[in-house]
Simulated scan of single mutants.
Amino acid sequence: MKAAEREVPDVHFTVDKQNISLWPQEPPPKSAPSLAMRQTPTIRAALICLSLFLVVSVVLQAILYPWLMGTISDVKTNAQLLKVCVDNISNLGSEIKKNSGDVEAAGVQIRMVNVSLGRAHSQILMLKTSVEKANTRIQVLTESWEKVDDLNAQIPELKREIDKASAFNAKVRGLQSSLENISKLLKQQSDILQMVSQGWKYFRGNFYYFSHIQKTWYSAQQFCVSRESHLTSVTSESEQEFLYKSAGEVFHWIGLTKAGSEGDWYWVDDTPFDKVQSVRFWIPGEPNNVGNNEHCVNIKVSSLQSWNDAPCDNKYLFICKRPYIPSEP
Score class of each variant (00 low, 15 high):
residue 3 A to M: 03
residue 15 V to S: 03
residue 24 P to K: 08
residue 30 K to A: 15
residue 38 R to M: 11
residue 41 P to W: 06
residue 45 A to N: 14
residue 52 L to K: 14
residue 55 V to C: 11
residue 57 S to D: 06
residue 57 S to N: 13
residue 62 A to M: 08
residue 65 Y to D: 05
residue 72 I to R: 15
residue 73 S to E: 12
residue 75 V to W: 12
residue 82 L to V: 14
residue 83 K to Q: 14
residue 84 V to H: 06
residue 101 G to H: 05
residue 108 V to R: 11
residue 117 L to H: 10
residue 121 H to T: 11
residue 123 Q to E: 06
residue 123 Q to F: 03
residue 124 I to P: 00
residue 127 L to R: 12
residue 136 T to H: 06
residue 138 I to F: 02
residue 138 I to K: 11
residue 143 E to H: 09
residue 147 K to N: 06
residue 150 D to V: 07
residue 152 N to A: 13
residue 154 Q to M: 10
residue 155 I to A: 09
residue 156 P to E: 08
residue 160 R to V: 10
residue 165 A to D: 11
residue 166 S to T: 12
residue 167 A to C: 05
residue 171 K to S: 14
residue 188 Q to V: 05
residue 206 N to F: 05
residue 209 Y to L: 15
residue 213 I to W: 03
residue 218 Y to C: 00
residue 223 F to R: 04
residue 234 V to N: 04
residue 236 S to N: 03
residue 236 S to A: 03
residue 240 Q to V: 00
residue 243 L to T: 08
residue 247 A to E: 05
residue 247 A to G: 01
residue 248 G to C: 00
residue 250 V to E: 13
residue 263 G to Q: 09
residue 270 D to Q: 14
residue 278 S to T: 06
residue 292 N to F: 01
residue 295 H to Q: 10
residue 296 C to A: 15
residue 301 V to W: 07
residue 312 C to R: 02
residue 314 N to D: 11
residue 315 K to R: 07
residue 315 K to V: 05
residue 324 Y to S: 07
residue 327 S to I: 04
residue 329 P to L: 08
